[in-house]
């Protein structure tokens, strides 16, 4: 005869333990961790390249991709320590993968750890990596309707970056609709427009990172 047992435990409990370990380690080190989430081709790696060229802090990067180490090769040209994780088909990073990758990154004395998640607006928002902030990265060519279509990510993000704004003259993009929907979902998020190739908005973005770092170390 079957008997009922109350569990009340997260479905993701095993991975959440790794996320807690990462959060605790980075709290002790005073390292800010930012989890960049966006579609394939949103411009996450190009944003990182532009950021690493301007930012006045010591940084490291963990790259998450289904396959190849192309992103890590691009980041290493900026002389920033980088580790590539290949998920072999997995559509998002999980905390146990990141915990292992952190073995290869000296976080002592590190100011900011960037994690570039696998290109996807859905699953990466579900899995806590131990980050201080999720950052939603969305590009102009993707269209202005993405916040409402993927509310979980945009609701949770500490900042929303609209990339490739230098393409606005060539694309029918309703910026008022995009930012209006972001505000409805997440009135407290920092909202920044960037064009990584021209450098537009990168200073506003690094200012936000600086504020987050200061708040963490206060």
């Amino acid at each position: 005869m079957p008997r009922k047992i109350n569990i009340k435990r997260s479905v993701l409990a095993a991975d959440e333990e790794f996320a807690s370990k990462i959060r605790e380690r980075l709290r002790k080190e005073g390292t800010l961790m930012v989890n960049l989430i966006g579609s394939p081709g949103a411009g996450k790696t190009t944003l990182l390249e532009a950021t690493l060229g301007e930012i006045p802090f010591s940084c490291a990067v963990v790259e998450g991709d289904v396959a190849t180490s192309r992103d890590a090769e691009r980041i290493s040209k900026t002389r920033t320590p980088v580790v590539q994780i290949n998920t072999q088909g997995g559509c998002h990073l999980e905390a146990h993968l990141l915990w292992k990758a952190l073995d290869e990154i000296p976080t002592s004395g590190l100011d900011v750890l960037f994690v570039e998640n696998v290109g996807n607006l859905v699953c990466p928002a579900e899995f806590d990596l131990g980050e201080d902030y999720k950052v939603a990265v969305c590009s102009v060519p993707e269209g202005p309707d993405k916040p409402l279509k993927y509310p979980h990510l945009f609701h949770e993000a500490g900042a929303v970056l609209l990339t490739k704004v230098d393409l606005i003259p060539y694309i029918d993009f309703d910026g008022d609709l995009f930012w209006g929907d972001v505000k409805k979902l997440n009135p407290l998020a920092s909202c920044i427009e960037v064009a990584s190739l021209t450098g537009k908005g990168i200073d506003a973005w690094t200012d936000v990172l600086g504020r987050w770092l200061m708040e963490k170390r206060r």
Partner: peptide, 20 residues
């Protein structure tokens, strides 16, 4: 006010099991 928090709606929880 836009200072609104989500109190419920993010659950992803094993509530109970029936086992033998």
């Amino acid at each position: 006010s836009s200072d609104v928090e989500l109190v419920e709606g993010m659950e992803l929880e094993i509530e109970s099991l029936e086992v033998e």
